[in-house]
Design a protein around this nucleic acid. Structure first.
Length: 141
RNA sequence: CGAGAUGGCCAGGCGGUCGCGGCGGAUGCGGGAGACCACAUCCGGCGAGGAACGUCCGGGCUCCACAGGGCAGGGUGGUUGCUAACGGCAACCCGGGGCGACCCGCGGGACAGUGCCACAGAAAGCAGACCGCCGGUCUUCGGGCCGGUAAGGGUGAAACGGUGGUGUAAGAGACCACCAGCGCCGUCGGUGACGGCGGCGGCUCGGUAAACCCCACCCGGAGCAAGGUCAAGAGGAGCCGUGAGGCUCUGCGCGGAGGUUCGAGGGCGGCCCGCCCGAGCUCGCAGGAGCGCCUUCGCGGGUAGACCGCUCGAGCGCGUCAGCGAUGGCGCGCCUAGAUGGAUGACCGCUCAACGACAGAACCCGGCGUAUCGGCCAUCUCGUUCC
RNA sequence: GCGGGUGUAGUUCAUUGGUAGAAUGCGACCUUCCCAAGGUUGAGAGGCGAGUUCGAUUCUCGUCACCCGCU
């Protein structure tokens, strides 16, 4: 499972990750991939997050499972399976990354193997999209 | 064997690996004078339900309010018990259903008053009479008029007791017998609801209170985001703005009592009576008043860290005694989640006829209601067959 | 955690306990060379389950769904 340090816990972190993150959907999940706020190229605007050392923190994940997924038992089950799947992926993510995983109503019907495949594919898609966007931004100006 | 009735129990089991949340222990490093704290690793043990659900009732706990009485509002509704309490439960009574075991019932009052009863029907509540029936009278022989009557017809959910007889012009509780129902009296049984028996009376006055209402009994408000401690900040009760009002508590400073009459005004958290407070004023003089820094309420906005509350309790299991029972007494044993983006997931082996329904704690209990795959146990009823 | 409200034609809403209506939409017909507009006409509903009552959309209880507010 996920240790406490690797979880997104505050409302602000959820909001910023959902806002900044690149989005990709597969099967029963939607992934928001928010890379570490390191001021690299184009000044990145005054970031809402404090200047605290963001990069040397471990990657974190948060989960959003709405009432549309099902009753409390179904929601808990989906959330626990997603946590387990993320725990396997987390070590491969760069430090400082925030990832929010949303579950769609279809997630309740998928077994663990399907859910795990959905997650890895969605994460892959979100990361590559991030790279493309970065390339576009670099070329256009 | 088949069909049922009632009560109770289980909620797949055993084991392994990697993780997660508390708790306990050990070791290491760091901080500290120390108690100890933080982090890491390892070990041990614990980790959702019978409904954790809905939030329909009742309590505990916490804060606020509170002399007392009445009104309003809400709730309950056979009796006797059980219980911390209840709208719950038990036994019993009454009414209804079932061959039966058994089940169902918001089950006080309709002579305290008011309202309503569509359509149909003559008539829907207090009497009255459409078609009839009978008598008298008139007649153009179709019937009209006057009187008596309510047995019969038809309408309706409901029509002023039912059946048979006596009686009469026709009829009628007018009278008689039996039956149903109402009221009163006596007596017996029962704590009681009520029931049994006997007698008398008028012969008989619909339904609806889950219509208003009457009667009896019960009910202060909010909820663990209650409430408290610590840190920061402007004196504090968390912060800011704005409007209206006010002087409660603590600390400090200024400062210096208390009592009585009248009393603008205010409070008693829906209202009233009533009670209480009360600037000022008067008398008066040694009792910490009063005032200020502030504070209360409404509206709007922003902020919210840590800890306590937080799980040992009307607790659970077994035995025994009292009781028809709900339940209670006593004895012995047991400790059983406490999170705060919120802990149970993944993989594998064996096993069961069945891969296994409904469903996830958030302060805690007692009920009720609802959802639910399948299985087990006990007692009882009816039917069939055999002995 | 606490509290409030609403379920009626496909849609938006009415309706003292006594045959459930309106607007709009839909179908057919008339009108027009055709369409629109207009006219005539038709179909179509009480969330679900019990109870009270002679009779329930209405009253009571339970249940389900949806919406809203406070903290």
């Amino acid at each position: 499972m996920l240790p406490a340090d690797a979880r997104i816990r505050s409302r602000q972190d959820f909001g910023s990750a959902l806002k900044r993150g690149r989005r990709a959907a597969r099967g029963g999940v939607v992934v928001h991939w928010a890379p570490a706020t390191v001021q690299t190229e184009d000044q990145a605007a005054p970031p809402p997050t404090p200047p605290a050392a963001d990069a040397n923190r471990t990657a974190r994940a948060g989960f959003v499972v709405s009432k549309a997924v099902g009753n409390a038992v179904a929601r808990n089950k989906v959330k626990r399976r997603l946590r387990h799947a993320v725990a396997a992926e987390l070590p491969h993510w760069p430090p400082g990354t925030d990832v929010v995983v949303r579950a769609t109503p279809r997630a309740a019907e998928r077994d663990f193997a399907e859910l795990q495949r959905d997650l890895t594919e969605a994460v892959q898609a979100a990361r590559t999209r991030k790279a493309n966007r970065a390339n576009d931004r670099r070329s256009t100006p």
